[in-house]
Computed example of a mutant assay.
Amino acid sequence: MRAAAARSNPEAAPFVLEAMAEDVLDRLSFIRFEPQRALVIGDWASVLAPALAQAGAIVIQREPGDFDEEAPLADGPFDLIVSLQVLDTVNDLPGALIHARHALSPGGLLMASFLGVGSLPALRGAMMAADGDRPAARIHPQIDTRAGAALLQRAGFSRQVADSNIIRASYRSLRHLVRDLRWQGLTSMLRSRAPSITRAGLKRAEAAFLSSADDQGRVTEIFEIVTLTGWRD
């Protein structure tokens, strides 16, 4: 599993996951929501679950690989369900949201964060350059805020909110970016593997990536974190 592999690497710096977890905590503090029972999925950096437990909540944790969008969530009901870097990788997102709503107690809250469509423009450009006139699917489909809000409404949530924020990180090479994505479990989750990039294609990708480098030879990559928030009446 990608999260387990990342967690086992001592050099991994899960800044995207940490940003998601800290943002969830900020939102809960702002609305003064104090859950008694919480389900946390995907918090392999151990930021969110310990903070909720310290605040007095009973917290059940699950790995991303334990989440089955085709089956009801066990051990409910929950006052709070939080999903980090998970829902954008499931096959049946509407079904997953419906199961999450059913697992909430009345007045319960769902918060789900993942990378949205504005993420990784430098990497996308590099992959397009690598593939030339035969582009391959190398990044799994991603969701924007408009689609996210519609999905929440379709799943029966009330007071649906979908918003996003951006974090930036700079890299001195395409190789360092790809390594960072692997360490953080942010690589593509497509079941069908794209064709391998040729040596010539890799050179084109590296050149395209560095074409937007700053004076210090570093390229700034964008990570757009989309957060879906919905309540169960």
Rank of each mutant, 00 (worst) to 15 (best):
A122T: 03
F209A: 00
G65P: 03
R27W: 07
W231E: 10
L25T: 02
V226Y: 06
F209W: 00
R62C: 02
L73A: 12
A4E: 15
G116T: 02
I31P: 00
G108A: 10
P121T: 01
R159P: 01
I139T: 11
S119D: 02
A162L: 00
L228G: 14
R218F: 08
I197S: 02
G56Q: 06
A208L: 08
A155S: 09
V117W: 11
E70M: 07
A38T: 09
A147N: 15
R232V: 00
S164D: 07
P94T: 02
F114K: 00
A136M: 06
L190K: 08
G148K: 08
D79I: 09
E11Q: 08
I58A: 14
V24T: 10
V90D: 09
R124G: 11
A194Y: 00
D133N: 14
D43Q: 13
G76A: 15
V82G: 00
R62G: 14
F209I: 03
D180M: 02
T89Q: 09
I41W: 02
L80C: 03
A49P: 05
G185L: 09
H99Y: 05
T187P: 07
A149C: 09
G42A: 05
S158F: 14
A207C: 01
S170Y: 07
S196A: 12
I60G: 02
G118F: 03
A74S: 12
Q160C: 15
Q85M: 13
A5F: 15
M20R: 06
L120R: 02
S113I: 11
L97A: 05
V40H: 04
S158L: 15
L151K: 04
G201H: 02
A96S: 14
